[in-house]
């Protein structure tokens, strides 16, 4: 179980592969569920050229660890990986990766879905967008639909 914050761009597919190689899961898992959130170049019908992601470092680390522990209590996960970007982000850059490994698909899928919703609603990150008309803090997240 690993969670960390990255101040630089990361490749989620390499991260998944590296984690899987290093985690010692061998062939125990039958399911890997992933969610990758990336930066769109538009929001509210307006072009967005860049984004800055701020966070509350000590609380963020603690909260991501707490989410992973709770997911593991709720579902029979073999492993879990969360990576979240901070700092300057460009369109198409990955922002968040969640990967869950389990013996069977339902646990991995449900845990992955639960983790991204919990993270989006509670983890202390804030996005500021750069648009043609200036910078703007996002006031709320999308509703997940």
């Amino acid at each position: 179980m690993t969670s960390h914050i990255s101040a630089t761009a990361f490749d989620p597919w390499h991260a998944i592969n590296d984690h899987q190689q290093q985690s010692g899961l061998d062939s125990q898992f039958g399911a890997t569920a992933t969610f990758i959130g990336s930066m769109r170049d538009f929001n509210d019908n307006t072009d967005v050229s860049q984004m800055v992601l701020e966070h509350y470092p000590e609380m963020t680390s603690r909260y991501l660890d707490k989410l992973e522990l709770e997911a593991r209590e709720r579902w029979p996960l073999l492993d879990c990986l969360i990576i979240h970007r901070v700092g300057e982000i460009n369109p198409a850059d990955p922002i968040v990766l969640i990967a869950c490994w389990s013996a069977h698909r339902r646990a991995a899928l449900d845990a992955c879905s639960w983790l991204i919703e919990e993270l989006k609603h509670r983890a202390p990150f804030w996005k500021k967008e750069t648009r043609q008309d200036g910078e703007r803090w996002l006031e709320h997240n999308t509703d997940g639909s």
Partner: peptide
């Protein structure tokens, strides 16, 4: 580092943070 309320008690040495709704992910 834990969510609290405005009427939650605080003690010497505590760290209190205020912030807007979160927008990560």
């Amino acid at each position: 580092l834990d969510y609290a309320q405005f009427d939650s008690p605080i003690n010497d040495g505590d760290e209190v943070a205020f912030f807007p709704p979160v927008t990560g992910g």
